[in-house]
Design a protein around this nucleic acid. Structure first.
Length: 496
RNA sequence: GCCCCCAUGGUCUAGCGGUUAGGACACGGCCCUUUCAAGGCCAUAACUCGGGUUCGAGUCCCGAUGGGGGCACCA
């Protein structure tokens, strides 16, 4: 990076109409990275001009999601800032003022066509297999007539007066210039009959007023990008840099994620909604690392990144314009990597939350001892339940069948268990340094495989066939409890 | 139907006219090993197709195909 770089002002501008999903999170991440990398500002703007689609609580969920990911904004509805308000529903008058300016300069006009008539026109056009466009009935209404009808209280909207001739060329940072014939463009409505602006006007006005330097948004805006440029140019405003990010496809890479498929994902322990990820055992670090690489790369080699790494290494010109399939197994991979990178005390604290959420009271000192032996075995934090719940149970309940070692009979297994038990009874403590050598000697003496002997002990002490390393586990469980569990296993094997 | 965007292994990607086409995930095998992991090693696997341009094309141009997006008083 050169030192001549200008601080970027970048905004994440979601509408509070649903859950924050992976695509939005990735846009917000890139916004955040660019702002922080350049010493600029990351702005959160709520685009809630559509009252019909407003979902109560969505704004709060969105903010919680961003905060969980670690993407704190510098300006926004809650923290304020010099260019507020940051909620579009609170900026109605501002948009009206600029819409009037557009009408006065001849770039927009009042339209009195009813939705019913518009619908009729649209249907006729479809029947003739034409592109659906407004037929421009009100485009050349005399200003006097328009004023008269407005004064008479007639319902109206404001439409942008798209040039009939020529073409418009816009520049997307990833795709270069895109030129479209103006006759492909419609006379889009920019102010609704309820007086509220539509995205096209509101976003351009806000981006200008809020001094946004880079607009990073989804590629669904590409078709209306020329309109936006036309609006900016009508005002004579400087155009920010536009970056249109590709969409996310479903894991197969064939098509985008449907609502149904998103729901099915939950059954597999995955979700495209940020709000679900924490509960599923994912780390914000893992999620950030994962989504950062969906459409961006650093050198094609390095893949492990923390948020500070990304701030240092992110660059817009390494963005990839092609759609990317969501790959949850890669999320698992990154999550595992970041779990292993966690300091033990922090891992222990996170584990405590996980256990607590399952109604298991796990104390921190024990958790700190457990953390190092399960850390490299976990993909999600939830895996700790399978790996370590037995540490906190009063009793374990191994089955007789599991206690019988491979290649041995029940009687032989009982004999092994009895001998191991007497070793344990003679041992002064359950430290693995004191227990492991005699146990290994026992393996030798009996002429068995370590797996056979240790397998019996594992099931006896942990109650399960898969567990963290045996002797470390015994040490944490404690001498008394280990003896107790081993005696019970002997009983179980001798019964029958 | 019309318009726009995109195109390297199954998936994420590096590549920016001359490479044995590199890395990662997943998958398979081996090593390590008390289980499960982690780690190490090895293997399988790609330039959508057709035309150009060029001494030479994954890389540039055109077309086709495929995928995606848009065509609202939603964003």
């Amino acid at each position: 990076m050169s030192d001549t770089i200008q601080p970027a002002r970048v905004r994440f501008a979601p509408s509070p109409t649903g859950h924050l999903h992976l695509g939005g999170a990735r846009t917000a991440l890139y916004d955040y990275l660019l702002a922080h990398q350049t010493g600029g500002q990351f702005i959160l703007r709520i685009e809630d001009t559509d009252r019909k689609r407003f979902v109560p609580g969505a704004e709060e969920e969105l903010m919680n999601g961003l905060r969980w990911l670690g993407l704190q904004w510098d300006e926004g509805p809650d923290v304020g800032g010099p260019y507020g308000p940051y909620r579009q529903s609170e900026r109605k008058e501002i948009y009206q003022q600029y819409a009037r300016q557009l009408v006065e300069s001849g770039h927009a006009y009042y339209c009195f066509c009813t939705p019913e008539r518009l619908e009729q026109v649209r249907q006729e056009q479809q029947k003739r297999k034409e592109a659906t466009h407004y037929d421009r009935t009100c485009r050349d209404l005399a200003p006097e007539e328009a004023s008269r009808r407005i004064a008479a209280g007639e319902s109206h909207v404001i439409r942008f007066k798209t040039p009939l001739e020529g073409s418009t060329t816009v520049t997307d940072l990833l795709r270069g210039t895109i030129t479209i014939d103006n006759h492909q463009l419609d006379d889009y409505i920019v102010v609704k009959s309820d007086g509220l602006a539509l995205y096209h006007l509101a976003a351009m006005v806000d981006d200008h007023l809020m001094k946004i330097t880079h607009v990073i948004r989804g590629s669904e805006w590409l078709p209306t990008f020329p309109l936006h440029a036309l609006i900016l140019r009508a005002f004579g405003w400087q155009e920010p840099v536009f970056v249109h990010l590709s969409v996310f496809l479903k894991p197969s890479g064939k098509g985008k994620m449907s609502k149904r498929e998103a729901a099915d994902l939950q059954k597999d322990g995955y979700s495209i909604f940020v709000k679900d990820l924490e509960g599923l055992g994912y780390l914000p670090e893992g999620v950030i690392n994962w989504i950062s690489l969906m459409g961006w790369s650093y050198d094609g080699q390095t893949e492990f990144f923390t948020l500070p790494d990304l701030i240092a290494k992110f660059s817009l010109d390494k963005l990839n314009p092609s759609p990317a399939a969501i790959n949850f197994t890669k999320l698992d991979h990154f999550n595992g990597l970041h779990i292993r990178a966690l300091p033990l005390d922090r891992l222990a604290a996170l584990l405590q939350q996980v256990f607590q959420s399952r109604g298991i009271a796990a104390d921190l000192p024990t958790l700190v001892k457990i953390a190092p032996i399960i850390q490299e075995r976990m993909v999600t934090l939830d895996d700790a339940i399978d790996f370590a719940a037995f540490f906190f149970q009063a009793d374990v309940t191994p089955t007789r069948e599991d206690l019988i070692a491979k290649g041995l009979t029940a009687e032989q297994s009982a004999e092994v268990a009895r001998k191991a038990l007497s070793i344990m009874e003679l041992a002064p403590d359950a430290q693995h340094e004191t227990v492991e050598p005699p146990m290994r000697a026992l393996v030798e003496e009996l002429g068995l495989n370590p797996g056979q002997v240790f397998g019996i002990l594992r099931v006896a002490i942990t109650g399960q066939k898969v567990s963290p390393p045996l002797f470390e586990s015994m040490e944490i469980i404690g001498h008394e409890k280990v003896l107790e569990r081993m005696r019970r296993a002997v009983q179980l094997l001798e019964a029958a």
